[in-house]
């Protein structure tokens, strides 16, 4: 029998990473501060989770400036979108399987 847990993506285990991906899926791009407000985590915490997603090529980072202040924006990559959708599919199947 196929084990549906195999399809769950380990990277999306964390609630924060799941939150980041959800926000990026429905917006073209979101900057660091808005992500922080949405997910309500500390700078360091958010940065480290974003790093993980970046290393897995799930998000794209764009560094820019607004005036003199840095403005870093994040967007989901094609691979990230695919992985996230697969993860959702797996979650759905698991719930159906158990119910």
């Amino acid at each position: 029998m196929k084990n549906p847990i195999e399809n769950l993506n380990k990277i999306f285990d964390s609630r924060i990473r799941l939150g980041i991906m959800s926000a990026l899926m429905v917006n073209d791009e979101v900057n660091f501060n808005d992500l922080k407000e949405l997910i309500q985590v500390t700078d360091g915490n958010l940065a480290s989770h974003l790093k993980t997603l970046e290393e897995n090529a799930y998000v794209d980072v764009k560094k820019g400036f607004i005036g003199r202040k840095t403005n870093t924006t994040y967007a989901v990559t094609k691979a990230g979108e695919k992985a996230f959708k697969a993860h959702l599919q797996a979650l759905e199947e698991m719930i159906k399987g158990m119910g």
């Binding site: 799941l18 997910i39 979650l91 158990m98």
Partner: peptide
């Protein structure tokens, strides 16, 4: 059962975040 609740919570989080973020 616990596991199922956990996954349901995850889905709910995702939905909420998608709505809240845009």
């Amino acid at each position: 059962m616990d596991n199922q609740q956990e996954h349901l919570n995850a889905l709910q989080d995702i939905r909420q975040m998608m709505q809240r973020s845009n």
